[in-house]
Structures are given as structure tokens and as C-alpha cells.
Design a protein around this nucleic acid. Sequence first.
RNA 1: UCCCCAAUAGCUCAGUCGGUAGAGCGGGUGGCUGUUAACCACCAUGUCCCUGGUUCGAGUCCGGGUUGGGGAGCCA
Length: 436
Amino acid sequence: MRSVRAGRDVAFVAVNDGSCLASLQVVAEEGMEGFDQACRLGTGSAVEVHGLLRPSPAAGQAMELAAERLVTIGGADESYPLQKKRHSFEYLRTIAHLRPRTNNFGAVFRLRSSLAQAVHRFFSERGFLYVQTPIITANDCEGAGELFRVTTLDPASPPLADGSVDFSADFFARPTGLTVSGQLEGELFAQAFTDIYTFGPTFRAENSNTARHAAEFWMIEPEMAFADLMEDARLAEEFFRYLCSHVLSECAEDMAFFDAQIEKGLLERVRRVAETPFAVMEYTEAIAHLEKATVPFQYPVSWGLDLQSEHERYITEQVVGGPVFIVNYPKDIKAFYMRQNDDGRTVAAMDLLVPKVGEIIGGSQREERLDLLTARMTGAGIDPASLWWYLESRRWGSTPHAGFGLGFERLIMYLSGMENIRDVIPFPRTPRHAEF
RNA sequence: UCCCCAAUAGCUCAGUCGGUAGAGCGGGUGGCUGUUAACCACCAUGUCCCUGGUUCGAGUCCGGGUUGGGGAGCCA
């Protein structure tokens, strides 16, 4: 029950079951069973109503429920923290157990659910295999990011060997943590099933305090065998635009809410992305644009340095004015598994940059040549023996292959206009916050 | 982790020059013949984040802390 507007002889009760943004108007009239009860209902209570669904004589709703009997299933008194008014997101985060009952979070989590199903539908329609990669991993070199430790050892007095913790006595008999990416395992499955994707939780123990980072988030990672970088980019574009079209047609009511309440112009922005092909720009070309820029940058620009947030925003917002793939980055600033280009100094990496957000997809063609991969791994300080199974995928039937990662929460932020990652995940985990 | 900002009623906030605290919403009571986060009238609300200092006197000024927010780095 969202609100009651009670008069002497008639009361209007707005009831919402979460299925959509709009509430059902229940009309209770003097004399019916439970009328006094209906007038006194507190916001947040749960009710059962019997009555006749009929066209509404008043503007504001097409149908209404003329109540014959109203029963309070679960009452809510005046201490209920949600009021019939707008609350700040900061306050609602402190009551994350109740915020899904609000209009705004109802819209967010319906959008999230619908998008998750659209992700599966997109890949299913294209014959991709859905693979569940492990959440607990012993890989300590999956890429960037600090690992959360997984252990059953007593933190107060762990077993020691030669002065350091003896992980051979731990549950898995080795150090383990929560995965930061399912990519490496995904590549193995691509070698068997050609086209695969993962969609699951990932974890980063980084002390990141921003509106765009969470310690636990969901990531979508497709991987295609017999594919190069540009095929990878094509898939990313098709995928991203598919999801834009999806929310416009399937979540129209909630999208209209976001457009009205969260970000003016959201619908137009998403519509444009759904309809317009994405630009592609070489990293080298992007550097040239930045060097010509008249606006001052805080961080230096030169070939070989990574692009900072301010640079990415400039390229996508000022130079291109829409989504753009930046491709072929210097190899020294990218991960060991990315395929080396023939120029000897770049790798087949791509980032999709979008206005407002910056980088939203990161991907690459993977290095399929065993000797080059081993050399880069060693150069990155990673013991090839620790990833022997990954290297073996390059020993037998190695194929060119490529994939990318999309942060699910960032996608939701982009499509809803919500500006804080903590407000698009049901129960956010960030540094010092694991309540609920 | 670094930089900046903020913290006052249940919520959102105002509080002038340092002189002992206010509004709207929400809540309560009453009214209202169909309302749309209804409307009208009345009523009640406070550890001014904590701590130390300056001062005759601190919500207000200063130091330390806590919490929250924004930005950066890292990235998705």
C-alpha cells in the first residue's frame, strides 16, 4: 500500500505489487467491510482487497478496483521509514531492505531483471553457449584487481611454514580467492563450443571509492573462436544496441519514468545509440586528436600512455559525439593475453567509450600463438607454470579468438540515467559496506 | 589511497554579524460528496554528528575524529 486519500464517505487506496510502476487505485466507500480500516492504513502495509475491476470515471487511471471487502494482511505504523514523498538516494541506501518498495527502485530493479533476460536471449538467439565459470579461483594473475581471499584457516593463528602462512593446510591446499573475471576459463570453452558467454558475479578487493565501482558486481563476457578484433567489436556493437532497443520497447513505462525523474533526454540519447552505427578509431589517431585539443588536460598525452577518464570523455563527447571503439593500444599498457599486432608495438585491444560514462566495454583478440603468449606472460612477471592449463589451449587446436567484458551495473546506469552504482545493484558491496 | 564538500526535527533543508532553533513534507486530531505524492484547520516534535578549544556566550569560529557525498587513481 503506497498511499491513502481518505474523505468522509470515500477513500482512495493506491496499491502496488511491484509488477509495474503504476499503482492500482482501490476505491473504498463508506459502509463496505473494512472502510474504517482502509482510511487508517499506513503507507507500507500489505492488504488483500476483493471487489470489482471497472473503468475509472476520473482521470489518472483507466481502471480502478471498486472494493467490496478490504483486509489488512500486514499493518505498518507511523515508524515505517518510507514516506509518500521523494527521499534522497543516500538515505535510501541506509534502508536498502525497504527501498525496492519505492517507485524509483522498483523501476531500477525491473529494468535490471528485464536486461538480464535480454542478455541471455541475445546470446541464445546467436547460438552462444552459456557457461558458468568458477567463483572461487586459484588464479592470482587473472588480470587487474586485488583478490578477495577465500580461506578456512583461523585468522587468529594460521598454520605457519618457514614464517609465512602454510596454505597447504587450507581447504584447497593452496591460496584461493574470489574471481575477478571468468575470461580465462571462458576461452577454454570457446575452443570447444566456438561461441560462449559468461554472466555472473565478479569481485574486486580494490579500495575504490567512486560512484562507478563496487566490490561485487556482475559481468558479461562473451568469447568467440575463429574471430578477430573487428568481429569482436561488431558483436559488442550489435549487443549494446540490442539492449538499448530492448529497454525502449520492453521497459517503456520505467524508461519514461527515468526520462522524467532521473535524466531529461534519456530516451532520446538511448534511441540515438540504438539507431546509429558506432565509430572506430585507432589509439594512435585518438592520441593525435588529444594532442591537437585546445582544452587543458590534467594528465599528459603522448603515444604510449594510457587514456585517462578525461581523455576518454573528450574523445567520445567532443570529437565523436557518440559511442566509439578505440582499437590497437600500445602493448605495454595492456594485459599479457592480448594479441600482438604485426607492427610490434600494439596489441589487438578495444575499448568502447560512450558519452557520460567513458569506458563501458573492454575487449581484445587473444594471443593464440603459444610462444608469443608465453613470452609476454614471463615479461609480465607471471610464472607460465601457474597457468599451464591456459597455455595448453594454445598447444592443440589453437584458434584466433576474441571476447570482451561488459559491467552489468554500468550498463544499467547508462540505460537508466542513475548515477551511482550503489543504486542499481540490490544490496551493494563497497569498502566498509556489506550490510543487508 | 589522494583532493574537495557536507552533517540541524522521522525525511528534505533554512538558520543573517557568535546572543540559546525554524519551514515544507511526514506524523497526530478534526473537517471535506471522486481523490491523484488530494485539500483546509489545529497540535507535537531536537544529544544542532562526536570531542577538545576560543569566548561572558558557539548550530555558527578553530583543532582532532566519525560518517556521508562529489572528483581522481585503479578498472567493469
